[in-house]
């Protein structure tokens, strides 16, 4: 059986990967994937922590399902914005998208 700590470690690693992704990836789509990874790190954490010897806490599952739904909304909006970015900039490179600065 895999202990709780492994799950926690996995979610921490996921979180770090998400951050890394946001900090280094140039492509907008990849950044959105980074956000998704971050969210899923949190979801994994929820599920892992809701598991006790007595069984699963149903509340945490509800939370996660609702959160996935909310997350989907955010990601959808992000993707639609990506489309608009592409229309205006003709590229998805985030480093080209820096007319707003200083």
């Amino acid at each position: 059986m895999i202990g709780l700590n492994w799950y926690l470690a996995a979610s921490a690693i996921l979180y770090s990967i998400g951050l890394y992704c946001l900090a280094t990836k140039r492509n907008l789509i990849k950044m959105i994937i980074g956000v998704e990874i971050l969210l899923n790190a949190a979801h994994l954490n929820f599920i892992a922590l809701s598991t006790t010897t007595a069984g699963l806490d149903p509340l945490a599952r509800t939370y996660v399902i609702v959160s996935i739904g909310v997350g989907a909304g955010v990601i959808a909006l992000a993707l639609s914005l990506t489309l608009l970015v592409y229309r205006h900039y003709r590229t998805l490179d985030v480093r080209k998208m820096r007319r707003l600065k200083w």
Partner: peptide, 17 residues
């Protein structure tokens, strides 16, 4: 100091990190 605000999203994220 303004030069530190590059407008690059990656750098913004690095600053946040």
């Amino acid at each position: 100091f303004r030069k530190t605000h590059t407008g690059d999203l990656n750098y913004n994220m690095i600053a946040a990190m």
